[in-house]
Design a protein around this nucleic acid. Sequence first.
DNA 1: CAACTATATTACTCTCTGGCTATTCACTCC
DNA 2: GGAGTGAATAGCCAGAGAGTAATATAGTTG
Lengths: 110, 110
Amino acid sequence: MANTSMSPALMELVAERFRVLGEPARLGILHALRHGELTVSDLVEQTGLGQANVSKHLQLLHATGFVSRRKDGLFVHYGLASKDVFRLCDIMCGRLESEAKARQRAIAPV
Amino acid sequence: MANTSMSPALMELVAERFRVLGEPARLGILHALRHGELTVSDLVEQTGLGQANVSKHLQLLHATGFVSRRKDGLFVHYGLASKDVFRLCDIMCGRLESEAKARQRAIAPV
DNA sequence: CAACTATATTACTCTCTGGCTATTCACTCC
DNA sequence: GGAGTGAATAGCCAGAGAGTAATATAGTTG
């Protein structure tokens, strides 16, 4: 990757995926799904978001392949499509830690 | 991560970082920097964006720790602060490939 | 100091999207 | 088939942010 060239189209696709994760509400939904599938109502309860809102976010998360969907009678169960989300968040959290440490050093250098 | 709970504040911070990457223009800048430092003018030329626009994106990328900044007379040289961006993009590209393959299978199953 | 250059900032417009309410759709059960 | 429930959709509004032109800032050079 670091050596290959990226077409604008690919860049747009990658950006779109990042943009999907760039929203606390959606991260909240993904986080709530970390231990297994949940229904829309479950997610509404756990995230505190409105039902319509959750549903809309889920459509987007599903369209971009972050969550799986399983219909079961009246209910629809959503789950994480892969562990990639955690890998991505881990990297971001690692970055945040480094930043925090750097700030710490800047304030109270050795 | 998958097991720990995330505070809303941390979630907001992580989302902010993803949001920064969720913009083709900024990915373009980061991509242009993959082989080393460049000045603002270089980036304007390579990305085709306006100068004010590039400058604004660079402020954001710097504030969120994605790029480093080195002043040298009239010029300011920007560079990648770490290789994390590539790791993140690699994961996203991997996801896109899987999706493409899945679509392929859906259209022409074995 | 004045002219010049590279970068940053400001002020503005325009588009996009997150959240809301109301409604519709899909399904179950009586 | 009709009432009831979970999920999806439509329509609307307000806020965020990307791009741009104009201006300001910082540094160099004559």
